[in-house]
């Protein structure tokens, strides 16, 4: 199958690669760019383990073709925080036991990151609704919701302090 020339900006880094038109974004990220943070859980857009940000929106990268992502800006879990300075969501997921097996966590945090961009001060109900595209089999969500609420509070107080 002939390949397409695809350009992406992933976590701030420009990438160029050849991919078949049918190749999925998750496959390109994991297999070609070695970004194995996003995971495959269902291949049908239900579980959200593959969630990444594409041009400022959360997408399920298991049902986005790499061709559709041509020219896009992508952020994966690898683009949030560094080992020396974790993103506040990463800190809060640890602080509030918002993860267990860790398989859903990259998608969960990436989605929560976008949610808090869209709604910096969400109610618990808004968090639950806004996270409903990401499944977790381990935590029962209670501590995930707690983690995200705590992250929102911390981000807001940091913002207030800066202003």
């Amino acid at each position: 199958m002939s390949k397409m020339h695809i350009k992406l900006t992933v976590n701030g880094k420009e990438e160029e690669l050849l991919a078949e038109p049918r190749e999925l974004l998750i496959y390109v990220l994991r297999e070609r760019l070695n970004l194995t943070g996003p995971h495959v859980g269902c291949e049908t857009s239900h579980c959200g383990a593959c969630t990444v940000e594409m041009n400022g929106k959360s997408v399920k990268s298991c049902t986005v073709l790499a061709a559709q992502a041509n020219g896009a800006e992508i952020t994966t879990i690898e683009g949030l925080g560094t080992p020396d300075e974790l993103h506040v969501l990463q800190k809060m997921f640890k602080e509030h036991h918002g993860l267990q097996c860790g398989y859903c966590t990259p998608g969960m945090i990436t989605r929560a990151h976008r949610l808090l961009q869209e709604n910096p001060n969400p109610s618990e109900e808004e968090v639950r609704f806004g996270m409903a595209g990401n499944l977790c089999r381990c935590t029962g969500y209670q501590n995930i919701v707690k983690s995200i609420m705590a992250a929102a509070a911390e981000m807001n107080s940091a913002k207030e302090a800066a202003e």
Partner: peptide, 19 residues
């Protein structure tokens, strides 16, 4: 005690079989 596993999982650095 907070979990020691979480550092790698929250940063997308888990190592699952498909990795």
């Amino acid at each position: 005690r907070k979990r020691v596993e979480d550092a790698r999982f929250t940063q997308g650095k888990g190592n699952y079989v498909d990795d």
